[in-house]
Nucleic acid binder design. Structure first.
Length: 598
DNA sequence: ATAGGGTTAG
């Protein structure tokens, strides 16, 4: 047997002789005559015998010899894993890379995947750049290096280390290693989930530049990411890209875009969503149940239950059966409108048509009862659900806990928290936020502090909502200046204040009569790239009215309409009470004159 | 590896 050329022999022997190692550096054997015996022992997993055979020789030297020999890399892998565990050591990065290269050359792909998965899982100290360096110097096959890099990216994604996956993606470009959609698509998907839209766009552009295979899933994922952050025009551009690339938009592409429009809070969004539906039909892409579910939920969220019901009926004429999700959207809307009889009638219809309600169905119905203050009905339904053998989720508990808090029944709220823990459902940030808001309403700051410490001790992190609750509590105490300091604290905790944060603070200043400060908050918000929304205008319009500046308030009202924002019930209420009832006739166009309706 | 429903803050 001719030993393979030992390209890195000298170098790696030196690397592995690190000081303080408990094993003497004596080689396992002066010649390789016993290697066949050793491989036999490894293949039969006679670890005890192997250990006796090894005696005091270095397990690292044996690894080196196995890597240098022509032994089946799977045996070397088996020895690698055993020796790490047995001697409580970590083999060097270079040896790991040599092993992965030999597995790659033997096309042992599943073994490579699991090796890289556990490597990435356990390894927190080695930088991505040194891993890439080691990959490139530990093997001579460029193709193998590309496959390894590809699997490494995927291993990072699967270990929820998308930041490192992204870095590995960039390094792979530096080395010219060719990645595939198998790793890049999951990377895109992970980045979308984390709202890292700049990184999504970077990966997408690089995939095209590096001529990585871009398929429908890649395009759809990017479109979804852009829709999620409201960049709908860019999303449409990507559809053009995909056509140019010879990939036709499919039902998922259109559904993603329709959903994007449904969630955007601008004038005519449902009109636009409907236009895309027509476009997809024109392009001979058949809408499916999900398309209809998106539209139905969109209309419900747009306060247009009539239109939602119309689409619901149209769905049947298209030969598509409503699903549990369809019913859940409608039951949710009916419940929130307080139409609880209709909501439970809908539940009966759903069961009648052979569909089995799930926990979401019950959550929305329970929420409907809670929002109407019918706690008895809500808890009865909860008991019913449990009796049916459906496990309540953390959302079910949070719904009830919040209702108790809002009702001032803090003991009941805390008791339900105890009970959920007993049943093995653990409180999350939302549970704590509900309790914190209840305690703030009671003015029990000591208890709030205690709860926040408790959640931190449990490894839960406070979020934007937690801060918003505290900002509101301070503003209600006439302490808007202190509330403003919380914004700085948030930023230090790398939490981004959102519209609610700014609007709450503006409202606090307005109620203190400090309009100048409120307007400064708006400026600060816009500097952060966040445009005023309907609620922002409502707060400021009300603030101006309270100061008697009806002309200025009317100016803001017009500005809001020009921005394409839809006035809501609150807007009408403010305009009616603060302007119309005081004899001021708003000088605006269209539906704003119709003050009586909502 | 891509699309749809449920809880909290103003």
């Amino acid at each position: 047997m001719h030993p393979k050329p030992k390209l890195f022999h000298g170098k790696f022997i030196l690397v592995n002789i690190f000081p303080g190692h408990k094993h003497p550096l004596r080689p396992f054997s002066s010649d390789n005559t016993s290697l066949p015996i050793v491989t036999e022992l490894i293949s039969k997993q006679h670890w005890k015998s192997l250990k006796t055979h090894l005696q005091n020789a270095s397990p690292i030297t044996l690894l080196q010899q196995l890597l240098d020999s022509r032994v089946d890399p799977c045996l070397t892998l088996r020895y690698f894993n055993w020796s790490e565990k047995e001697f409580n050591l970590s083999h060097s990065l270079e040896h790991s890379c040599m092993l992965i290269h030999s597995l790659a050359n033997a096309k042992r792909y599943p073994k490579m995947r699991s090796f890289l998965y556990s490597f990435v899982k356990n390894e927190n100290s080695i930088s991505v750049s040194s891993i890439f360096h080691a990959i490139s110097v530990s093997g001579d096959s460029f193709c193998a290096s590309s496959i390894i890099a590809d699997m490494l990216v995927l291993a990072y994604v699967n270990n929820m280390k998308s930041h490192l996956a992204f870095e590995a993606f960039k390094r792979a470009g530096d080395y010219g290693f060719k990645l595939s959609a198998v790793s890049c698509n999951p990377l895109l998907s992970a980045l979308v989930k984390e709202d890292k839209i700049e990184d999504v766009e970077y990966v997408y552009k690089e995939m095209i530049r590096r001529r990585i295979e871009v398929n429908a899933i890649s395009f759809n994922t990017v479109i979804n990411g852009l829709c999620k952050v409201g960049k709908l025009n860019k999303a449409s551009d990507v559809i053009q890209d995909m056509k140019a690339w010879g990939v036709l938009p499919d039902v998922i592409t259109y559904n993603t875009l329709i959903s994007g429009y449904c969630k955007k809070g601008r004038i005519g969004k449902m009109y636009k969503a409907d236009a895309i539906l027509k476009e997809m039909i024109a392009n001979e892409v058949r809408p499916n149940e999900i398309t209809y579910n998106i539209l139905i939920d969109g209309f419900c969220k747009d306060e247009n239950l009539m239109a939602a019901m119309k689409v619901f009926r149209e769905m049947e004429t298209q030969g598509l059966k409503p699903t549990v999700v369809t019913y859940n959207s409608l039951i949710n809307k009916l419940g929130l409108e307080g139409k609880l009889d209709e909501a439970s009638g809908m539940l009966d219809d759903m069961v009648g048509s052979g569909l089995k309600p799930n926990v979401v169905t019950y959550n929305v119905l329970i929420n409907g009862y809670c929002k109407k203050g019918k706690m008895k009905e809500a808890t009865d339904l909860f008991d019913d659900v449990v009796k049916q053998g459906i496990s309540p989720t953390v959302v079910t508990y949070n719904t009830l806990i919040y209702a108790y808090c809002k009702d001032g029944r803090m003991e009941d709220a805390f008791a339900l928290r105890e009970s959920m823990v007993d049943k093995g459902t653990f409180p999350d940030v939302t549970t704590y936020n509900c309790l914190i808001s209840g305690l703030c309403r009671e003015g029990n700051i000591t208890a709030v502090r205690k709860l926040i410490n408790e959640m931190l001790n449990k490894g839960l992190k406070v979020d934007v909502v937690t801060y918003n609750i505290l900002v509101d509590a301070l503003c209600n105490d006439g302490e808007s200046r202190k509330a403003a300091r919380l914004l700085d604290e948030m930023v230090k905790m790398s939490l981004r204040p959102n519209h609610v944060t700014y609007n709450t603070l503006m409202d606090g200043y307005c109620r203190e009569g400090n309009l100048r400060a409120a307007l400064n908050v708006r400026t600060r918000m816009e500097k952060e790239g966040m445009r005023a929304n309907v609620a922002t205008y409502n707060v400021l319009i009300k603030g101006l009215c309270k100061k008697g500046k009806l002309e200025d308030a009317n100016g803001l009202l017009n500005e809001m309409l020009e921005e394409g924002l839809i006035p809501n019930r609150m807007t009408y209420e403010i305009v009616k009470v603060e302007m119309v009832d005081k004899g001021f006739v708003p000088d605006i166009e269209g539906h704003m004159y119709n003050i009586s309706g909502s």
